[in-house]
Simulated assay, not measured.
Amino acid sequence: MTATDTGVLAGHLSLLAEALLPFRASEQLLARWGAELAGTLSGGGRLLVAGNGGSAAEAQHLTAELVGKLRDDREPYSAIALHAETSALTAIGNDYGYDEIFARQVRAHGRQGDILLLMSTSGASPNLLAAARAGREAGLRCWAFTGPTPNPLAEACHEALAVASPESQVVQELHLVATHVLCEYVDRILPTVPAPPTAAVRTGVEVVLDGGGPRVEAG
Rank of each mutant, 00 (worst) to 15 (best):
T4G: 09
T4D: 12
T4C: 02
T4V: 10
T6N: 11
G7E: 15
A10P: 00
A10G: 12
A10W: 02
H12N: 10
L16G: 13
E18L: 15
E18C: 11
A19L: 09
L21Y: 07
E27I: 03
L29R: 12
L29F: 14
A31M: 09
A31H: 13
R32E: 15
R32I: 00
W33H: 10
G34R: 06
G39S: 14
L41G: 10
G43T: 07
G44V: 07
G44Y: 08
S55F: 05
A57W: 04
A57G: 14
A59F: 08
Q60L: 14
H61T: 10
L62G: 09
L66R: 02
L66W: 04
V67Q: 07
K69E: 08
D72F: 12
R74Y: 05
P76C: 03
A79T: 02
I80P: 06
E85D: 15
E85S: 13
S87H: 12
T90Q: 07
A91K: 04
I92R: 03
I92L: 12
N94E: 06
Y96E: 05
E100F: 01
F102D: 09
A103E: 00
A103D: 05
V106D: 10
H109I: 01
G110Y: 02
R111F: 06
Q112N: 06
L116H: 08
M119R: 01
M119V: 12
S120E: 01
G123L: 02
P126T: 00
N127T: 09
N127A: 04
N127H: 07
L128W: 01
L129F: 08
A131P: 08
A131M: 03
A132H: 04
R133L: 03
G135I: 02
G135L: 03
G139D: 07
C142L: 00
C142V: 14
T146L: 08
G147V: 02
P150K: 04
N151Q: 09
P152Q: 04
L153Q: 04
A154C: 06
H158P: 03
H158N: 12
H158I: 03
H158A: 13
E159Q: 14
V171I: 15
V171A: 06
E173V: 00
E173A: 04
L176Q: 13
V177E: 01
V177R: 05
A178H: 05
T179R: 00
T179E: 02
Y185Q: 14
Y185W: 15
Y185K: 05
D187T: 10
A199F: 08
G204F: 11
V208W: 15
V208C: 14
L209A: 12
D210W: 11
G212P: 00
G212F: 08
G213S: 10
G213K: 01
P214Q: 10
V216D: 01
V216L: 11
E217H: 08
E217M: 10
A218D: 10
A218Q: 10
A218R: 04
G219C: 11
